[in-house]
């Protein structure tokens, strides 16, 4: 049953041009970025590993932003277009509805990843880091997009409004994104270390630095970073579960 929801929503994304625009815009961003980076690499202004690290951050950052926007609308649209009632009257369970919506956003992420692959291959040519780059972008991107999607779906059940869900999600994205951009020097103190451990995006960027710049590609070498990201996903699942309980208590009509 969740497959039906997934199929319906993916078809909607394609035929309403949402995914087309996102994929096109991210492809243009990657094109401009890669051209600039490779021009600088040819001038030896930028080391290839630094270039790959920058590209990895852009891929993860752009994909997260698109996932947040998509996830913010994918459930709230059912409330705002008044189609939720018909869905809840049918045999479809709330769990299947959530799974279907979740899979739709993850499919959009998969498409964005597919768009990024040629850019990664071209940029990493000769470095030997291509497979590791692709594998870790897939792993971290899936975990982060998955975690954020679950969190945003939880907000959707609480707010039932696209505008409010999107605003809160973007503020949360900024809250994790800005500290992740701080240099290692700024995070060298105990408080900075706490931020590094608690912030999943910081963990992803630090891990990618570890892999692409320092060549520590083994999973064991990045275990602590993975644990931080996995912890975020668990928190997002709990938040969603609580939000669904609140929704169940109120019912379709919000007082």
């Amino acid at each position: 049953m969740n497959k039906l929801i997934w199929k319906k929503d993916i078809t909607a994304e394609i035929y309403t041009w949402k995914s087309a625009l996102w994929l096109l815009l991210t492809a243009i961003i990657y094109s401009v970025t890669c051209y600039l980076l490779l021009t600088n690499k040819e001038l030896s202004l930028l080391d290839q590993t630094e270039m790959l690290w920058l590209l990895a951050k852009i891929i993860i950052g752009a994909s997260l932003l698109v996932a947040i926007i998509d996830a913010s609308s994918i459930l709230t649209v059912e409330f705002e277009q008044e189609t939720m009632e018909d869905l809840l009257i049918s045999p479809l369970s709330v769990k299947d509805l959530i799974i279907g919506k979740f899979l739709t956003v993850m499919t959009v992420w998969a498409l964005m990843y597919a768009v990024a692959v040629p850019y990664v291959l071209v940029s990493s040519a000769g470095s030997g880091l291509g497979p590791a780059f692709l594998a870790y972008i897939a792993l971290y991107g899936t975990l982060m997009v998955g975690g954020f999607t679950l969190f945003v779906l939880g907000l959707s059940f609480l707010y039932r409004s696209f505008k409010n869900t999107l605003t809160t999600s973007l503020v949360f994205y900024l809250a994790v994104g800005i500290p992740a951009l701080f240099s290692a020097t700024l995070k060298a103190n105990p408080f900075g270390s706490i931020i590094s451990v608690a912030n999943p995006l910081d963990a992803v960027f630090s891990s990618l630095d570890n892999i692409l710049v320092d060549y520590h590609t083994a999973l064991t070498a990045n275990a602590t970073y993975l644990a931080s990201v996995a912890g975020f996903v668990v928190v997002a699942v709990v938040f969603l579960a609580v939000s669904v309980k609140v929704f169940d208590r109120h019912g379709i009509v919000k007082e």
Partner: peptide, 30 residues
Amino acid sequence: AGKIGVLSESKGLYEWMTGKEFLSFFAGLY
């Protein structure tokens, strides 16, 4: 859900679908 059919007051329709796709989708849910 197997016993009842509901025509609710809500406006809810998927305007980007064809009529056939819309009914097929709900038939699939049932």
